[in-house]
Design a binder for these strands. Structure first.
Lengths: 145, 145
DNA sequence: TTGCTTGTTGCGAAAATTCGCAACAAGTCA
DNA sequence: TGACTTGTTGCGAATTTTCGCAACAAGCAA
């Protein structure tokens, strides 16, 4: 899933932010490392390439890229945070509390919900990424919840 | 919102867990401190009463009571965790990313969603507590999302 | 290309959270 | 009531995440 670097860079600069090698490295790392990447994994990866890149920068850049909707934050079952590329079409996760598996949920299923919140509560739900927790097919029988 | 101590204690013992003064103190603290209590606030509160009670215990007990469905975990807008009493009738939150306000959402609105996930994906969504992020009435105009 | 402005980074320290293990004590059973 | 079992706690250290600030460098303009 290669990201369109020049497009992203243009977008950042247009908003008055800077494109730094650190940001590019971290973005590449998330892109390569896959679907739900922890800050620590990102640090390991980029630190090998740029040993002076600090942990603080990793956290800051992950937050920053999430605010810019370039990355999306994923809540894992254990409560920790991970990140992944935020595609143009958002998708969502069903996270199994037993086996930690991730099921992807198409965006469409949330749109009705979003509309309902809008009309009933005048609240604009940000559905760029949502995680639901529970038990998947394989685990729902064994787990006595 | 006073909790039924004896009922909770009975429930814990029945499951083979112990009722310790630490656990009772921490539960009381969450109960008194209100709707979305941070671990730090709990620590401050109980530490005044029981100075030897450690931070580690606060975190452990909060996790534990959440697993027992006595407390509920709340995701705040900044990504941090807070806790609150888990009532028999679950409720949910619309969290405003701009002003941090919490809107309560009745349980009923999520039941249809839960049923849909069940039939379509054979996934049993745990709807004991769900938070949605976005922008509330007051902030949705000013925030240029 | 050169210099300025100011957004970013690196570093070290602080704060938040988790872990391991020995000491402790809640609940049980005689 | 008095021991025993084993779930819990406290402590200190490790890990994770955040913070403050001075040095740095990306992007802009001349």
């Amino acid at each position: 899933m290669p990201h369109n670097t020049t497009e992203i860079n243009r977008q950042l600069r247009k908003s008055g932010y800077r494109v730094t090698p650190q940001r590019q490295l971290i973005l590449d790392a998330v892109c390569q490392l896959g679907d739900h990447v922890t800050p620590d994994a990102v640090y390991d990866h980029v630190h090998r390439i740029a040993p002076t890149l600090s942990r603080a920068t990793v956290y800051r850049v992950l937050h920053f890229l999430t605010e810019q909707h370039i990355l999306a934050m994923v809540h894992m079952a254990d409560g920790r945070l991970a990140y992944e590329m935020a595609g143009p079409e958002p998708h969502h996760h069903l996270v199994c509390r037993s086996c930690d598996s991730l099921l992807e949920l198409p965006h469409s299923v949330l749109l009705a919900f979003r509309r309902a919140m809008d009309t009933q509560y005048d609240f604009e739900v940000d559905v760029s990424h949502v995680s639901f927790f529970g038990h998947c097919t394989d685990c729902r029988d064994s787990a006595g919840a």
